[in-house]
Every structure is written in structure tokens, then in C-alpha cells.
């Protein structure tokens, strides 16, 4: 394999990983605060269709991404209100959110189907962005750099700031956090909104970064992979980056090896497709076997918090 092909493959891999990485980063913060939102796919579809519509109408992808983030956050508030203010079951509410997002995006998006869009490409000069080697650094969409930035931002926030410490405390032991005066519900609202915004941006990656079109169900189940990824990364932001690229690599390898011809056809495509899910279960088992690592899973994950009781 030549160096240029390797670079080309890495670029495709990074593209394929970015939407999952963004959505998973959001979900990681949500889960760290002790909330499990299974509505990622619905929020991503909302972000995808809104991102497409705004970019198509205004021609401004920056605006498209911003509105997609707001749209993702907005639909996540349905989930937040039900689960946090009304203590509704998180699993059921998250699934309902996915059903809602799927239906909403299909209905809202029907007038945008069959319309072309421009990809949101690198903003660096072509001499850098299209150089066969340097494009590994300069050839990406701003969305990719944004995802890098967010990995470190989330890592820094969770591990180096007081606010991050409080958020983790809320996810670890909501009763104690409440008793020392933190607003458990308020903090979780913030986390869910962040998760929704990130899923919205992740969704907007589909028409802006991967395939510049809108079609019903465009995200094709990536929201569930993002959910797996959070677990696969054991709720650690830096590991999330590695995990997203590993998942992206598995998906991309399948295509590149097929394109390379029969040589690599040892593993059945169904096995390839199952790998991320099996690997995630494997990680869960490893986490559970190791005692210290287990502490990283938020103890209150998915459990409703009822103040004063």
C-alpha cells in the first residue's frame, strides 16, 4: 500500500468517524451526568435535515451547522423535560425521541429530497488542502477540526474544571450532590442540551461532509453506533477519539479491501459489520472484570433523580 493511498484512506476514515464522534461526545457528557438518552438517532436526523435545509436555503454551512445544533438541542429538551422535570423513564423517552426525530425529519425534509448541495470543504488554501501528503493535516472540513477541538474541550471540562467535577459528581451520586447544594436537575438539563446540540452537529455532518443530499433516514443507524461508542470508550473522551477512529477504520477497511480486489476477502462482510457491536460488549466485560476501571461508569446512569426523597 502506497503512502498516498494510506493517506487517502485515513481521510475517508476520519470523515466516516466524525459524525459518530461528535454525537458520542455529546452522549458521553449526558451519561456522565447520570442520564441515558437513547434518542441520539432521532436528534441526529433532526440535525441532518435542518443542517441541509438551512445550508441549502442560505448557502451558508456555518449557519447550517449552528441551526442544526440548536435544533438538536431543542428536540433534546422534550427528552429533558419528560425525564428530568417529570421523572419519566429514560429508556422509553429516548426511544420515543428517536421515533419522533425519524418522523419529523422525513416529513420536514420531503421538499429537500432530490436537491444537490455543496460539501463543506477545507478552508485552507488548495496548495495545502490538496497536497497529496499535507492534506492529511489541512484537507479536512472545518467539522473535522471542530470534532478534534471538542474532544479536548470535553476532556478538559470533565477532568480539569470545577463545573466538570460537579457534573461527574451528579452522575456518580445525585443524592449527595443535591445535599451539598447543587442543582442536579439543572446540571442534567445542561448536559442533555449539550448532547442534543452535538448530535445535531453530528447529523449535519451527513449532508455537509459525507454525501451532499437529503434523503429520508440519511443517518442509516449511526446514532446507535455512537451509543455503542460511548460505552466502548468507557466514558473517557480521549479513548472516545480512538474508539471513533477504530469504528471508522472497520467501516472503511471493509470498502477499501473490497476495492482492492479479492486478496483481503477472508472475513465475511456480516462479520465486519458486527465487529463494532461485539467489540463494545467485549469492552463492557473487560471494564467489569477490572475493578478500578469500573469506577468510570457513572453510577446513576439511567436512574431518575427525585429531589427530597
Amino acid at each position: 500500500m502506497s503512502a498516498t493511498l494510506l493517506i487517502a484512506m485515513l481521510i475517508t476514515m476520519i470523515g466516516a468517524s466524525t459524525p459518530i464522534l461528535l454525537a458520542a461526545l455529546g452522549e458521553l457528557v449526558v451519561e456522565k451526568s447520570g442520564v441515558l438518552n437513547l434518542g441520539i438517532e432521532g436528534m441526529m436526523l433532526t440535525g441532518a435535515v435542518v443542517g441541509f435545509a438551512v445550508t441549502y436555503t442560505t448557502g451558508n454551512p456555518w449557519l447550517g451547522i449552528t441551526i442544526a445544533a440548536l435544533a438538536g438541542a431543542a428536540v433534546s429538551m422534550i427528552f429533558a423535560f419528560l425525564t428530568l422535570s417529570l421523572s419519566a423513564n429514560q429508556v422509553a423517552t429516548g426511544l420515543a425521541l428517536t421515533i419522533f426525530g425519524t418522523g419529523f425529519s422525513a416529513l420536514f425534509g420531503s421538499e429537500y429530497t432530490g436537491k444537490p448541495l455543496e460539501l463543506f470543504k477545507s478552508i485552507f488554501p488548495a496548495s495545502l488542502a490538496e497536497d497529496p501528503y499535507l492534506r492529511l493535516i489541512f484537507g479536512h472540513s472545518p467539522l473535522v477540526y471542530f470534532s478534534f477541538f471538542m474532544v479536548f474541550a470535553v476532556w478538559w471540562f470533565l477532568s480539569r474544571t470545577r463545573a466538570g467535577l460537579i457534573l461527574r459528581a451528579v452522575g456518580e451520586n445525585d443524592v449527595s450532590a443535591h445535599s451539598i447544594g447543587y442543582s442536579v436537575i439543572g446540571i442534567r438539563y445542561g448536559a442533555v442540551a449539550f448532547g442534543g446540540a452535538m448530535a445535531g452537529v453530528g447529523g449535519a455532518c451527513f449532508p455537509l461532509l459525507l454525501t451532499p443530499q437529503w434523503v429520508e433516514g440519511l443517518t442509516a443507524g449511526r446514532g446507535w453506533i455512537a451509543l455503542a461508542l460511548v460505552v466502548f470508550a468507557a466514558w473517557r473522551p480521549l479513548r472516545l477519539l480512538a474508539g471513533a477512529y477504530l469504528f471508522g477504520l472497520i467501516a472503511t477497511m471493509e470498502l477499501y479491501t473490497q476495492a482492492a480486489g479479492g486478496v483481503f476477502r477472508i472475513i465475511a462482510p456480516e462479520m465486519w459489520a458486527s465487529l463494532p457491536y461485539l467489540a463494545t460488549i467485549g469492552v463492557l466485560v473487560i471494564i467489569s472484570l477490572g475493578r478500578s476501571a469500573n469506577a468510570n461508569a457513572p453510577a446513576c446512569l439511567g436512574k431518575p433523580f427525585e429531589a427530597g426523597h
Partner: peptide, 8 residues
């Protein structure tokens, strides 16, 4: 898709 919205 309207059905999904009703169900949700």
C-alpha cells in the same frame, strides 16, 4: 412519517 409523529 406522520404515523411516527403520532406514535411519538
Amino acid at each position: 412519517p406522520a404515523v411516527g409523529i403520532f406514535q411519538a
